[in-house]
Computed example of a mutant assay.
Amino acid sequence: MDYIVSARKYRPSTFVSVVGQQNITTTLKNAIIGSQLAHAYLFCGPRGVGKTTCARIFAKTINCSNITDEHEACNECESCISFNENRSYNIHELDGASNNSVEDIRSLIDKVRVPPQIGTYSVYIIDEVHMLSQAAFNAFLKTLEEPPKHAIFILATTEKHKILPTILSRCQIYDFNRITIEDAVGHLKYVAKSESAEIEEEGLTVIAQKADGAMRDALSIFDQIIAFSGKSVSYQQVIDNLNVLDYDFYFRLIDACLQENTSDVLLLFDEILKRGFDAHHFISGLNSHIRDVLVCKDPATIQLLDVGTKTKERYGEQANKCDVNFLMDALEIVNACDLQYRVAKNKRLHVEFSLLKVARILTEKK
């Protein structure tokens, strides 16, 4: 079976193909151009944003014997070929979670003394480095401070606060960003095109939102959707598969509140519960929805919306119907409902009462 998941198949192999980390890739390229390589780097940030990928690309590029005019690895020299075929003796990857003892670090220190057979540098990539024990960190300190000239360490972690200050002070620290919705959607479009799949932009936006800033998660969800729906995917299929509450419910609810139609408000909430959605999840989503409508009241802040083009237009239309005071009062009521939800004895009644209060805002103002 030759199937490869998208997160591996479309893993970036050059600096330019890394998604959403241009400031870091530019800095690393400039360090290579100016021959200003540090002996230790610390890459930190959320999961799935490209820390280990950037470490591999950097390690591959500094050992390339024929770097291109764009300052990328050539993929033709012996060092690049051996790296691409997973047989490079220059680049060593260590999992800090399963190799976290003093003995593991001492074994690594013994290997560091051996110069590379091909290329200039021996690069040691230690993933999840925060998992090393206190004793292992201490054993590592001297080598990290004064390694041999041919050795470069790249440490990667999702939990920078767990790393000893003495380790941090010996490294150049790079903080990776969460991937923005826009960057994630752009990359998903490229992957969909490469896979000859058609998926609506609104659906890609939902996938990117669900991934919460992790490109790897977005690609995993993308694979799941393709497996569920085939090569042609609609927005409705995406939200059905991911069990996401459709924007349409929120738009209809606010419209009903503007018309002071309390019956429709209660029936809509009942329909949401019957579809299996959690009431607290719904209230949290309504909070975000009212905030997004409020953002659309000013053309200058519409860019703050992380939604597709069609949905953005719909937000604009609803913003035109709503008075700012109505939105502020609604936001205050729904936010209070969210905060008090956990202590409410009758949670359904708690939410329903809050929704009825929102539906009566305009009446109370008269």
Score class of each variant (00 low, 15 high):
95 D>H: 00
103 E>S: 15
99 N>G: 03
94 L>Q: 10
110 D>A: 14
143 T>K: 04
132 L>I: 03
146 E>S: 07
92 H>A: 04
136 A>C: 14
132 L>E: 14
131 M>K: 06
135 A>V: 03
120 T>F: 15
113 R>G: 06
123 V>S: 03
132 L>A: 03
93 E>A: 04
119 G>K: 05
144 L>R: 08
109 I>R: 14
106 R>E: 15
149 K>Q: 13
130 H>K: 05
145 E>L: 14
99 N>V: 00
100 N>K: 02
91 I>G: 06
107 S>T: 01
101 S>V: 09
94 L>I: 15
134 Q>Y: 04
123 V>R: 13
145 E>P: 08
113 R>D: 00
136 A>K: 07
112 V>R: 11
115 P>G: 04
103 E>R: 06
150 H>D: 02
133 S>Q: 04
113 R>A: 11
136 A>N: 08
121 Y>H: 14
101 S>W: 04
104 D>Q: 11
145 E>Y: 15
145 E>T: 11
121 Y>L: 02
97 A>P: 10
122 S>P: 12
94 L>H: 08
133 S>V: 01
130 H>Y: 06
106 R>Y: 15
125 I>N: 07
140 F>D: 02
129 V>H: 01
128 E>N: 11
144 L>V: 10
116 P>G: 01
118 I>R: 12
143 T>G: 09
139 A>W: 14
141 L>W: 14
126 I>K: 03
119 G>H: 06
115 P>M: 06
138 N>G: 06
129 V>Y: 00
112 V>Y: 04
148 P>N: 12
129 V>M: 04
119 G>R: 09
131 M>F: 08
127 D>Q: 02
102 V>N: 12
95 D>M: 01
115 P>K: 13
96 G>S: 06
112 V>K: 02
144 L>I: 07
102 V>P: 15
103 E>V: 02
145 E>W: 05
93 E>I: 06
147 P>S: 12
93 E>N: 07
141 L>T: 10
127 D>R: 10
92 H>Y: 03
97 A>I: 04
103 E>K: 15
137 F>R: 13
112 V>P: 09
133 S>K: 07
126 I>E: 13
146 E>D: 15
142 K>V: 10
138 N>K: 04
142 K>D: 13
137 F>P: 15
120 T>C: 10
131 M>Y: 05
92 H>M: 15
112 V>N: 04
146 E>Q: 06
100 N>S: 03
124 Y>H: 04
130 H>I: 07
147 P>F: 09
106 R>M: 12
106 R>P: 05
98 S>K: 03
119 G>L: 09
126 I>W: 03
125 I>R: 10
95 D>R: 00
99 N>A: 08
133 S>I: 00
142 K>Y: 12
117 Q>G: 11
120 T>W: 01
144 L>N: 08
114 V>M: 11
120 T>H: 14
147 P>C: 02
134 Q>R: 09
137 F>T: 13
101 S>T: 10
130 H>D: 11
95 D>C: 00
142 K>R: 15
119 G>E: 07
127 D>I: 01
120 T>R: 15
142 K>C: 03
96 G>R: 03
129 V>D: 01
138 N>Q: 08
139 A>F: 15
121 Y>K: 12
132 L>K: 01
107 S>H: 09
103 E>N: 13
